[in-house]
Design a protein around this nucleic acid. Structure first.
Lengths: 274, 274
DNA sequence: CGTCCTATTGACAATCCTCAAGGTGCGTGG
DNA sequence: CCACGCACCTTGAGGATTGTCAATAGGACG
């Protein structure tokens, strides 16, 4: 007989699987506390079907979530109801951090595929952190990691062209897949062109056109959501494509358009004290 | 005789002022631990001149920093040496969180004016967190707040037009000033147009033109770095210029000369009649 | 007074968005 | 099974928003 409960987001809890602290730490890619089996803390798994929400905006903050399997998106909703995609979490990612401040969630997490999520009740987890010094530091580290990731995202959104954004999106996605043991070259997009566009600050048409252009240039092959990265180094260093007219197919090796003048470096200030 | 030391960023430490934990918590706007004077932990102030760096990219992470006075920017440096501005910290803001992960700083903090900064040695501060339960939670909360702020930044960069970005930049800056007790309507920009543009993902020319347009429309008055917000509600709700069709429709007939500029507001309830 | 940094403004170009018209794949119901 | 609807994707045309380049001017400072 399994306990069944439901929360504001409307998911059902089957409660048929549990993980201990060392498994959670493994998943999060942080060092496992040495005296792990000391206290038998167990954390419940919950399954979500594609389309279900793990937490919603404004929902009271109770727990953090670790993705054990599946693919999700996190979104903001603006005043007109438009979604703004913030991230595409997958296995090993931590969700819900934004809820700590103000005790309620500032964003929404939606399953893009069937997902298996581990619930970390915040209070209990924080208490564990106070007993295991390493765990507390690891929590700070994970939050810091998220912050750095978002900083890089801001830099990308501000500075890069549409092509460079899409190229970088593909390569980082590939890197994440290979870190998880999947192929980093050939994978399936779990999100629509519209969601990619929202994430990158582009329209879905621009995303589609850019993918087609990469396909023609031989940098990738793309068929609907099936992607193959053919020239990752070119993708990684690509800044801007030449005008379509002068654009050569695969023949031209140097696909890297650098040509950016160095902006004057905020001068002689270097604060080198004496 | 004052102790003088220097670190990798090259700043000098005058060591002439110290704050206790309750003062630091006050500054950070988090609840003060009840048993505050319990342990006499003191944190050193350091002064930085305009242009000096508080920490640099790659520098070993040792401490967090709280701004006691002054204005700063935090930046990333891309592969060509271009600066990407991430934030403009001021009094009460926490710096250096990005260094926790990987034990080294991922960004650079530069003083835009003379600054007074409080040093929080990370290890000592984390230890305090373990004794004072509230402090640990407060630290999580501050980091969560930063994350939420960056999420909103991402949403803004992705979704808003140049005008809306600049408008929102001005109003949030005004709000921060008034929370600090200064005027939220009339203030001095501490950063260049170039830095604003980098922060907002625009060129300095676009920033300058937008400010001039707001000035002509009577939303603000601007003279170099002196800003006066005249219609904050219009600024806050301004979203996007109308599509060409609807814009031309109005000015087509009689008021061609007068209304040609940017007159018809979009998403702004307060009609700006000139 | 000259130099450097910053800001403003104009002319022009192009990147990217908007609008529009198909096309493909998939589930559902006749 | 096929037709149909629906969501997603592709591609094109055209234009607007924004970047690029350039010229000018003001301020700070040695």
């Amino acid at each position: 007989m399994l306990p069944v409960m439901s929360n504001e987001a409307g998911w059902r809890c089957h409660g048929n699987l549990w993980s201990d602290l060392s498994q959670v730490c493994d998943l999060l890619n942080i060092p496992t506390p040495l005296n792990s089996t000391d206290e038998e803390a167990l954390f419940q798994h919950v399954r979500f079907k594609a389309g279900q929400r793990i937490h919603t905006i404004g929902q009271n903050f109770e727990a953090l979530y670790v993705v054990n399997s599946g693919f999700l998106k996190t979104v903001l909703i603006d005043e007109y109801g438009n979604e703004q995609v913030l991230s595409f979490p997958m296995k090993g990612d931590l969700l819900g951090i934004d809820g700590i401040h103000n005790q309620q969630h500032a964003s929404e997490a939606v399953a893009l595929s069937d997902c298996d999520i581990i619930i970390l009740p915040y209070k209990a987890f924080a208490n564990l952190g106070r007993s295991y010094v390493e765990l507390e530091h690891a929590m700070f580290s994970v939050m810091s990691r998220e912050l750095v990731r978002e900083q890089l995202m801001i830099g990308m959104l501000s500075a890069l062209s549409a092509e460079a954004k899409v190229a970088r999106f593909l390569t980082t996605l590939g890197e994440r897949f290979s870190q998880l043991g999947y192929s980093g070259k050939s994978f399936n997009l779990r999100m629509t062109r519209h969601e990619i566009g929202s994430y990158l600050g582009l329209t879905l048409e621009t995303v589609s056109r850019t993918l087609s252009a990469f396909n023609e240039m031989g940098l990738i092959s793309v068929d609907q959501r099936e992607i193959c990265l053919l020239d990752t180094t070119a993708l990684k260093t690509l800044r801007r494509l030449p005008p379509a007219k002068t654009r050569n197919k695969v023949s031209e090796k140097v696909s890297v358009m650098v040509g950016k003048k160095l902006l004057p470096q905020w001068g002689s200030e270097t604060a080198v004290a004496v």
